[in-house]
Design a protein around this nucleic acid. Structure first.
Lengths: 143, 143
DNA sequence: AAAGAAATATGATTTAAATCATATGAAATA
DNA sequence: TATTTCATATGATTTAAATCATATTTCTTT
């Protein structure tokens, strides 16, 4: 469904948000350990998220990553997915038929659109905050 | 969503079925040309489909691939997807969290399950026949 | 100002998927 | 039975994603 990169991005974002929610800033090492991801690879992903202003990075001693509390409500999964994988998951043809569209549909066009729409709706309506609450209350896990 | 291999498998199956529906047998070359896929790669995929008895292969002059008419009704997309990609798409965690399950759910477990179920339902309820009819009537395209 | 701790930037390596190429085997027909 | 046409089998190559490694930059603290 998502690329591994995107999965790590989502898990990292949730973790950072969960810590920021408790006023804690986290380093790459913290993140990698707590979401069980390769450290350098995670660093690369965080750079992208920082550039897209999904996470905020602070260099130097005491630095790390955080997500301002106001943003935890505002950031949704769709933004993260788009930042990493682009919007192909929302638009691309399920059978990779060239130029598949309503005027020139693949045999699955209609049925796929419905599922893709559900996915898009879900990603769009799921903000970090609700995921953070679940993680912080021990109802769900990142590892 | 699906691997490229699986996409080719689905398109090839639809094409073969569409031709079989009109009592025509097709060669690998025909298939590759008509679904715009790499020929040798397609051959490899067809071997798998033949072993899983989704398509029927006939060697020698006049040979090729076909899907017996009775089967065009019976074969659904889920069977093809499982033959190629396995059932991971129906079961795997959207965030690749280790051992994600109801007792140890990732933050997206619930929401993903709902979408995966819709997908499974769609693949299960879509048989080759309905796709073939669309293709043969010119309503949808494989290329 | 110096030292240390952090992110950033870049490039190399590994792995897996996708693709290409070719030799082999089986069936039909002449 | 020889030849041709097809699928089958196998392995090599390419490509892209994932991972690893390291040098550089920035910031903080002393």
């Amino acid at each position: 469904m998502f690329s591994k990169t995107c999965e790590y991005a989502i898990r990292a974002s949730i973790f950072i948000a969960a810590q920021s929610y408790q006023d804690k800033r986290v380093t790459i090492k913290d993140i990698a350990e707590n979401i069980d991801s390769p450290k350098s690879f995670t660093a690369k992903i965080l750079q992208i998220l920082a550039k897209k202003e999904i996470v905020h990075s602070i260099k130097g001693i005491g630095g790390g990553f955080e997500i301002p509390k106001e943003n935890i409500k505002r950031i949704n999964l769709a933004q993260i997915v788009i930042a990493i994988d682009g919007d192909s998951i929302f638009k691309s043809c399920g059978l990779s038929v060239n130029h598949c569209c309503d005027q020139h549909p693949c045999p699955l066009n209609k049925k796929f659109k419905s599922i893709r729409n559900d996915l898009a709706k879900m990603l769009d309506s799921t903000c970090l905050e609700e995921l953070v609450l679940d993680v912080n209350s021990g109802e769900s896990f990142l590892i």
